[in-house]
Each structure stands twice: as structure tokens, then as C-alpha cells.
């Protein structure tokens, strides 16, 4: 299921960071890999997880593989603030219940 893949992808801090970088601008895998203390294969694995969740796309440019954010992801990120507000609202609803018990 697509949603599970997305959440699984976002559950990892390195993948979130990769996504953030490519959302900002398209990048060759090699450039991305240089940011992390992981092997190239390790990064490629993370990228594969992100790709499977359709959060990113890969394309070939000469001998390089370029990673870019999927436009769907952009739309999602525009919804982030809304979602964050929901989390806070949920928190406060829980606080209501606690205060009621106190």
C-alpha cells in the first residue's frame, strides 16, 4: 500500500534528509552520497526505498543517475503545515482530557 511505503520511507532520518535535499534541487546520487557517513550502496538502498514510495524519481544523465523529488511529494509538503497543526490540535485535545481528570 502506497501510504505504508511513504510512512516507512519517512520513518528514517537519512531518507527524510535525502528527500529534503532533492526537494530543493535535483541531485546526482554521487553528490547525495557525499553528505552521509554511509557507503554508496547504503545510500542507494535508501534511495530505492524512497523511489518505491514514489517520493522521488531517478533518471539517467550520461553516466550519472539524477534524483529528483516527485511532484506529488511537493504537494504533500505543502500540506505539511496543516498536518503539523493537526498534530498540535490532537495534543491539545488530549490535554483537555487530562485537565478534566486532574
Amino acid at each position: 500500500m502506497q501510504l505504508d511505503l511513504i510512512f516507512h520511507s519517512l520513518s528514517d532520518i537519512t531518507r527524510r534528509d535525502i528527500l529534503r535535499r532533492v526537494a530543493h534541487e535535483d541531485q546526482p546520487i554521487k553528490t547525495l552520497a557525499a553528505h552521509y557517513a554511509l557507503t554508496f550502496a547504503g545510500i542507494a538502498k535508501h534511495i530505492h526505498v524512497l523511489e518505491k514510495a514514489r517520493l522521488i524519481k531517478k533518471r539517467k544523465s550520461g553516466r550519472e543517475q539524477i534524483v529528483s523529488a516527485n511532484t506529488e511529494t511537493i504537494r504533500l509538503s505543502q500540506k505539511h503545515l496543516e498536518r503539523y497543526q493537526e498534530i498540535l490540535a490532537c495534543r491539545y485535545n488530549q490535554l483537555d482530557q487530562l485537565l478534566h481528570k486532574m
Partner: peptide, 23 residues
């Protein structure tokens, strides 16, 4: 955006319906 992607994970259950709608 970084912080929100973390928040999104915390809000897993609650975010599901909305995300499904967006997708």
C-alpha cells in the same frame, strides 16, 4: 519542512485519511 516530516511520522494514524485523500 524537516521538522514537519518528523511530525508527520508522529501523527501517523491521524494523517492517514488526509494523506490518502491528497494522493
Amino acid at each position: 519542512e524537516k521538522i514537519l516530516s518528523m511530525g508527520m511520522q508522529e501523527g501517523y494514524t491521524m494523517a492517514l485519511n488526509q494523506l490518502e485523500e491528497i494522493l
